[in-house]
């Protein structure tokens, strides 16, 4: 090597400082890459994340295979009805785990290693988690979309697929914010896993994933109509119901809730508000923990 600086001598003071954006993207990408390398070398989370919804899809679909025709509003098969619920549940479960890697880094001290580095913005740590979990949950959900199509549970079409992706993104952002907040709030991974475990199934059952509101007793109908999962499930279900006409997303009712009728546009607005609200809510917490 012809380098003028000997191996160990400190750098002269004239170090070039590149732009903030370049630095933030360099650190964020490096942190995101680490999460993906972990995933690829320890793929059990990925496999379980796809396998579980597949089992739901096949078993639940089969469970009601001989249900009387016309049982469900809209008249489709149960498998078709279930598809939207399972897709949303897949994204939801994946995003709910967003906080786990952060929690492990807190607990085992890897976060301290990151924090001695002169990060341009410590939000990079959070941003990397969001990028990672968003892509992961989208990949998993799209795998389910594909499988559901192959199983004959329908296909949303191109515009429909775009709506599916947008809806899932909004839900994933909201749930990721929640999970990251919990990861900094709770004392350890045992507690975080407990919360994830306890939250998972009740949220699924108290939504319209498995049955329409009209099947439920009043109290459960109310819960389902307030459950964020429902606001993601119904737009996706409508996208599966027939060719999506963009001009009608603000007029066609997709959810008959006890408190009124909601359109796809209403549902998406609620999810957006939820995602933004949760990020604003956890921001002070993250600032405090990372400062």
């Amino acid at each position: 090597m012809t380098s003028a600086t000997p191996a160990l001598s400190p750098l002269p003071e004239t170090s070039v400082s590149s732009s903030a954006l370049a630095e933030i993207s360099q650190e964020t990408l490096a942190l995101t890459r680490r999460l993906f390398v972990q995933l690829i070398r320890r793929p059990s989370t990925l496999v379980a994340g796809v396998l579980q919804p597949l089992i739901w899809l096949v078993l639940f679909g089969a469970l009601f295979a001989k249900a009387p025709a016309g049982l469900l509003p809209g008249g489709g098969s149960y498998g078709r009805f279930l598809g939207a619920g399972v897709i949303v549940f897949t994204a939801f479960s994946a995003a709910l785990n967003a906080g786990l890697p952060v929690m492990f880094d807190r607990e085992f001290g890897f976060l301290n290693r990151l924090l001695v580095a002169p990060l341009r913005s410590r939000s990079s740590i959070v941003l990397a988690s969001v990028l990672y979990i968003t892509s992961l949950s989208l990949v998993q959900s799209l795998a389910i979309v594909g499988t559901a199509g192959v199983l004959g549970y329908g296909w949303p079409g191109a515009t429909g697929l775009a709506l599916v992706v947008i809806t899932l993104l909004l839900l994933v952002f909201a749930v990721t914010a929640l999970s990251l907040g919990l990861a900094f709030l709770l004392p350890g991974h045992i507690e975080l896993i407990a919360v994830i475990f306890v939250a998972n199934l009740p949220l699924l059952f108290a939504s319209t994933a498995l049955a329409p509101i009209s099947f439920m007793p009043t109290w459960l109908g109310w819960l389902a109509a307030l459950n964020p999962l429902t606001f993601a499930i119904e737009p996706i279900r409508s996208a599966y119901a027939g060719d999506l006409v963009l001009s009608r997303i603000a007029t066609d009712v997709v959810l008959e809730a006890p408190y009124g009728s909601l359109t796809t546009a209403n549902c998406l607005a609620i999810l957006t508000a939820l995602a933004v609200g949760l990020f604003l809510l956890i921001r002070p917490l993250l600032d405090r923990k990372l400062s």
Binding site: S15, S18, A22, E23, Q26, E27, L29, A30, L31, R33, R34, V37, Q38, R41, R42, D105, F108, G109, F110, N112, R113, L114, V116, A117, P118, L119, R120
Partner: peptide
Amino acid sequence: RLLGYVAQEVAIDKILSGRELLALQGDLHH
């Protein structure tokens, strides 16, 4: 930026190779 710190006991990412860890830290130093 001026400091290098070698902690008494610091977590390592068991899944990364040493070289990958160095690359990660290098990126954190831009």
